[in-house]
Structure formats: C-alpha cells, structure tokens
Nucleic acid binder design. Structure first.
Lengths: 200, 200
DNA sequence: TCCACTTGATTGACTGGTCAGTCAGTCGTG
DNA sequence: CACGACTGACTGACCAGTCAATCAAGTGGA
C-alpha cells in the first residue's frame, strides 16, 4: 500500500473546487472545470466524491464544524462576558473570511444563503449555529448584562445576519475590504449590537 | 384589435412563476412547470418573455422598485425622525413579506442573496437600496440623533442584513411567523438597532 | 349578411447542446 | 499479480428555446 501519496489529490480537488465555485458559482461550474483547475483527470473527481454536490457539502461541513466549535468554545468560557463572547464569534467569522475569502464566499453564497437548494441539506448544521449564539444571548440576559425583552432567537438571527451581510458586502465589492476594515468591523458589529446606533 | 383579454395571461404566467419558483427554486423549475402551473401552453411563456430568466427579472424589478420608492419616501419626509424613517422601511419590508411571502421568498433567495448569479444582474438596484438607507443614517448623524462614529454604509448593510435574515428565518421555518411576530419584529428590529442589546 | 383576409394569441412537438456520471482500461508499486 | 490510483472517451437524460401550425377576433368590401 502507498504511504501518503506525495500530493494529496483529494485535497487538491477540494482546493480547486473552492476556486472554481468562488469564480463561477456552483451551478455554472462543470465537473470538468474542477478537474482542470486541479490538474487532474475528470474521472478522479468521482473516485474521491460521489457527486459534484458532495464536493460542495464537504467544503461546507469542514468549515462549518470549525465555526460551531468556535462558538461553543466562546459560549463555554467562564472568563468572558457575554459581550466578549459575541466579539469572539464575530472575530472568528471575520478572520475566516480574511484567511480564505474564496471559501467563505462559496459557503455563504452557495450554502448559507441558498437555503432553497443546498442550504436545505445543511439546515440542521446552520440552525445549530443560531442556537448556540442564542444561548450566549440568553445567558447574558440571565446575568443581567443584556436587556431581557429581546427574544434570544431573534437576537441571534439578527447578529448573524448582520455579520453575513457585511461579508456579502466585501464579497461583492459593495464595501471596501482592507485589513483595517476587517479589524474595525469586528468591534463595530458588536459595539453596534450591544450599544445601539443612538448615543448613550 | 382586442381590448384587454378577459384574463391577462402574462400576469397569470408571472403569478404562476412566483409559486413555482418559491416551491422548487429557480434552478430546478422547468419552463414547463411554469406553463403547467399557469394552465397555459409551453410556448406562450416565450411569447411574453425572452427567457426563463426574464420572468425572474421581471418579478424582482417590479417589487424592488416599490421598495426603493418606499425607502425614498421615508427618507424624503420632513416630519419623521431618523428612527421613524428606519421604522417605516422595516415596516414596509415586513409587510411585503406578510402580503406575499412567496414573492419575497423568491426575491430574497433567488436574487438578493444570490449575488453570484442573478444578484449580479441587479446589483445596481440592490445597491441603491443600501445607499438610500445609508443616507437616512447619515442624516440622523448630522442631526445628532445617531452617534457619529459608525460608518453609514456599514450601518445600512447591518440594518438590511438583520431584516433579511429575519425574513429568511420565517421563510425557512427557523423562527415562528405569526401575525403578532410580524408586528413585533418591526419595532424590535429598529429598537435593537437604535438602542442596542445592553440595558440603557 | 357573408366571406376573405390580417394579425396577434396560443399551442406543443421537436431539436440541438450540454453535462453529470459511468466504465473499461492503463499505470505504478508492493 | 493484486490492488488502488488514475485516465478520459462515451452515453443517456434532460431541457431551454424554436417554430410551424391553429385559433379567435376584428376589419372592410360587396
């Protein structure tokens, strides 16, 4: 049996898929495009994946698991204030984009915001994120750090939606996206959510 | 020449398209599905529309124009406070969903949040909405009603994103959607945005 | 009144192109 | 010689869009 092959073709295919999906969108990329981009034969894609869709699913699940872990870690911390927990979540998401904008673009555009097609498949995983964020808010309310008259589920949709929209703005060049914009966004999102738009 | 035909088949096709797109998503509806749902021959769709895509474009543009008008009307008012202007916009969007959830679902899922495919085509129109909202915020800042250290563009993405996410929650049954939820959401969104999550 | 003709609405069978997925086979290595 | 990695030509299904034909309603000439 081979030891690890010198280059992991499976990984190579996944990475190529990120680039191609980001460039053309899932629906208008042919499996041949992925294979070409990966420098690999058409058939090999089907050696490693059951279908084109499975490639996307894999990309999503890999990354979303990290997000869920990050949220739960923040939530579980005993040292962070609720506000700091939200900051940690916002930071993680923004850093994810910063680190691999193409992957985040694919995840947001093709899965998270495509709840009609692939989102359907992943609704449970997506919902988990909302629920964990809601838990952070609920804890904050119980501790008196957050006002109690806002439904935590509502707040969590609201929080996640705002961040995702911000990423969308970067993705589609609606809004400038420099290193400092990223850093600013992290604090600004949480600040706006906690303090509101009106002066205190 | 005929006066108005007793039933407007073009409208009938558009309405059928709303239902079918909402049910199956744009990509997996066949033109035949639209024709069947409308009770009309396949070819007639092409008599009234250049392509399947044009049907969707028409649906989007019709409704988005109303949204833009509503935002601009709120913005132009001299009697409303900035906060009330945002309330008017939030109300309009929520009421749109309330009035025709299927259409709003199509618009959000297939256009607004699909900036990779059809969103591209409508990016200019979409951007206009963000800009008008940003203007409301900027005015509010100039008048001292809103804090000045939040970029209006940022605030507008944030505001619109939060609302859209809320609609998405309704659309995909992530969150209960009763009449009272709608009414509550209108004020809650604006309240949260202006006052923040933390107690004042 | 009747018919010939025009014009747009309407029909649905058909075609041409596109791909996802298959598979029979080659290659490299233990 | 076994077995997984790898190749890429091929096929079967699917479907957007076309088009030739039919229908229905007006128009005007005799």
């Amino acid at each position: 049996m081979a030891k690890a092959p010198p280059i992991d073709k499976r990984r190579q295919i996944l990475d190529a898929a990120i680039r191609v999906f980001a460039r053309q969108g899932f629906h208008s990329t042919r499996v041949a495009d992925i294979a070409d981009e990966a420098g690999v034969a058409y058939g090999l894609v089907y050696h490693y994946f059951k279908s084109k869709e499975e490639v996307l699913n894999e990309l999503f699940s890999e990354r979303w698991a990290l997000l869920l872990a990050a949220i739960d870690e923040a939530d579980g911390s005993t040292e962070l204030t609720p506000r700091e927990k939200l900051e940690a979540v916002a930071s993680f998401i923004v850093d994810s984009y910063r680190h691999d904008p193409e992957l985040m673009k694919v995840i947001i555009v093709e899965v998270t915001r495509a709840a009609n097609s692939f989102g359907r498949t992943h609704l449970t995983e997506i919902r988990k994120a909302y629920e964990s964020i809601a838990r952070i808010v609920a804890d904050g309310q119980a501790a008196g750090d957050f006002r109690g008259d806002v439904d935590p589920t509502f707040a969590s949709m609201y929080f996640y939606g705002a961040i995702e929209q911000l990423l969308s703005g970067w993705i589609f060049d609606l809004v400038p996206a420099s290193a400092s914009d990223f850093e600013q966004a992290k604090t600004l999102v949480v600040e706006t959510i906690c303090d509101g738009l009106e002066p205190r």
